[in-house]
Design a protein around this nucleic acid. Structure first.
Length: 499
RNA sequence: GACCCCAUCGUCUAGAGGUUAGGACACUGGCCUUUCACGCCGGCAACACGGGUUCGAUCCCCGUUGGGGUCGCCA
């Protein structure tokens, strides 16, 4: 028997900052491919027209390159099975969608979003395990065709069996069973003509000859839909391997609200890519001699997918920092380290940005050191007293910081202008003078009451570092109790409801 | 709520029927040292619970509990 060529892929959707979870999946997929002299493919899953952006794609590509996880095929570099951006593969998907409809495995659905929301609501209340009532499933094909041709808006749904059980194999967990009755007639083509993830992923993985799907556990529940599509098309499904999810301290899925999750944050904080990769490698996997520091090469040489352990690992920044320190101490000459440092933050481009906002308040060159240390120092020290402003106690300041944090999370572009607008609006809504609002922020962001302009500083530091610092300040103030947090969330939602 | 997944120190993990349950981070005691850090030596600390199977269960099976995930024209 000739072994099938091992081909793995990373399939991120370009809808935000590059996420460490993406890096985690990339690492395991990459290592598995390299271990087997296979190929690692990057495919951009930009089927969400609303949220996908080219900037995000670039950021993801950049951060993967920074990590040193290079792909063999992908957008820009191409490959035999391209294009590697799903938005450029629309005709391909249509061909397969049409085929499913023609063969009676899929059907147009004319239900409005409003109706679907209603139905979903009712069914959920009634305890039904699926959200759609399959209203359009039985429309006679001729009638459906007529309605489509008449220009009525529609989506396409796949016909999921009404009864029976889907059994599939996960490499790490063995057989998994799920009743078909618990699965919706999944939409495979949206009203805008774009495929949904489920259709696109199956078609592409097949066409791109992917041998192993290595991705996060959150996908397990949709595997039956995928398996069904493979069956409809008469294709052999690849091996499914669902990685455990990286977790916050409270064990929930790693999230922006509770942790820095952007690869960019780690980069800007001064984590070395080799240390981050190493650390990610020890989440759920280990070397047989239990050595904790290992290179990507060592990981490749010793890696076996089946050795991955399944408990969701908590992402522990302290341990990452310890590991990073070992790299700095053990692997760098002073000369090499200097190069790294320059590359990281001591370069002209970065200095220029900072100098630009310092110049006006410098009286001698050595002011530089004190004035800018918050750009190079991750552990800025803050005192509780300084965070407290005019007649407000810890709780009040905490509440303000928390609401600002929530607001900042919603910002898509982290520029000084957008941050300023956000604060301005915030101060109006809460009826607090802007300068009182920004006062504790100066301390939180720079550690100093007198410092470089707040919004410029935040822009240079970036969203993740800024938010992390605000969180640290809140910790210094004693944080909010669960109860108070809930109350605050209500108040916040009423004040800042978007719709 | 329904369904799916998971379960060893606070955290990352080793263990694959018989171990004083091992290592690492964190915490901590000491040594080294002009301070700190590093390094070295030590300490604290875990098999969720209940039934089976077995001469014997952390390990196998079942249940309970706990945690997580999914229930979108988002991925």
């Amino acid at each position: 028997m000739t072994a099938k060529k091992i081909r793995t892929r990373l399939a991120p959707s370009p809808t935000g900052d590059p996420h460490v979870g993406t890096a985690y999946q990339a690492l395991f997929g990459y290592v598995w491919a390299k271990k087997n002299n296979g190929s690692f493919i990057l495919r951009i899953e930009d089927t969400d027209k609303e949220r996908s952006t080219p900037e995000s794609e670039r950021a993801i590509v950049d951060s993967l390159k920074w990590l040193g996880l290079e792909w063999d095929e992908g957008p820009e570099i191409g490959g035999t099975y391209g294009p590697y951006r799903q938005s450029e593969r629309l005709e391909i998907y249509h061909e397969y969608i049409n085929r499913l409809v023609a063969e009676g495995h899929a059907y147009p659905c004319f239900c409005s979003r409003e109706r679907l929301a209603e139905v979903r609501n009712e069914r959920q209340k009634a305890g039904a395990s699926s959200g759609y009532d399959r209203k359009c499933r039985d429309i006679p094909p001729e009638e459906a065709t007529k309605r489509v041709e008449a220009g009525e808006e529609f989506t396409v749904r796949m016909k999921v069996p009404l009864e029976g059980t889907c059994v599939f194999e996960d490499l790490l967990r063995g057989e998994i069973e799920k009743d078909w009755a618990s699965i919706d007639d999944q939409v495979i083509m949206k009203a805008d003509g774009f495929p949904t993830y489920h259709l696109a992923v199956v078609v592409d993985d097949h066409l791109m000859k992917i041998s192993h799907i290595i991705r996060g556990e959150e996908w397990i529940n949709s595997v039956p839909k995928h398996v069904l599509l493979y069956e409809f098309f008469g294709w052999e499904p690849p091996v499914f391997c669902h990685l455990p999810l990286l977790r916050n301290k409270d064990k929930s899925k790693l999230s922006k609200r509770k942790n820095p999750v952007s690869i960019d944050w780690y980069r800007k904080t001064g984590i070395l890519p080799e240390a981050l990769l190493n650390y990610l490698g020890m989440m759920g996997w280990h070397l047989s001699d239990d050595r904790e520091k290992f290179s990507l090469h060592e990981m490749i040489d010793n890696f076996r997918l089946e050795d991955i352990s399944l408990g969701g690992p908590v992402f522990d920044l302290d341990k990452l920092l310890w590991l990073n320190g070992r790299y700095i101490r053990e692997d760098f000459s002073t000369d090499d380290l200097l190069d790294r440092l320059v590359e990281w933050g001591l370069n002209r481009e970065h200095f220029e940005k900072i100098l630009d906002i310092c110049k006006g308040r410098m009286s001698c060159l050595s002011d530089w050191g004190d004035m800018t240390n918050h750009f190079f120092n991750n552990n800025i020290s803050l005192s509780k007293d300084e965070l407290l402003i005019k007649n407000r106690d810890e709780t009040e300041i905490c509440e303000i910081l928390q609401m600002i944090l929530w607001e900042l999370e919603k910002l898509d572009r982290f520029t000084k202008e957008s941050i300023y607008l956000l604060f301005k609006e915030f101060s109006e809504k809460l009826d607090i003078k802007l300068k009182y609002l920004t006062q504790p922020l100066y301390i939180a962001i720079s550690g100093k009451a007198v410092s470089t302009p707040l919004f410029d500083t935040m822009e240079i530091l970036g969203s993740d570092i800024s938010r992390m610092r605000i969180r640290s300040a809140m910790e210094e103030l004693g944080n909010l109790s669960g109860k108070k947090l809930k109350k605050l969330e209500k108040k916040y939602n009423s004040l800042f409801a978007d719709i």
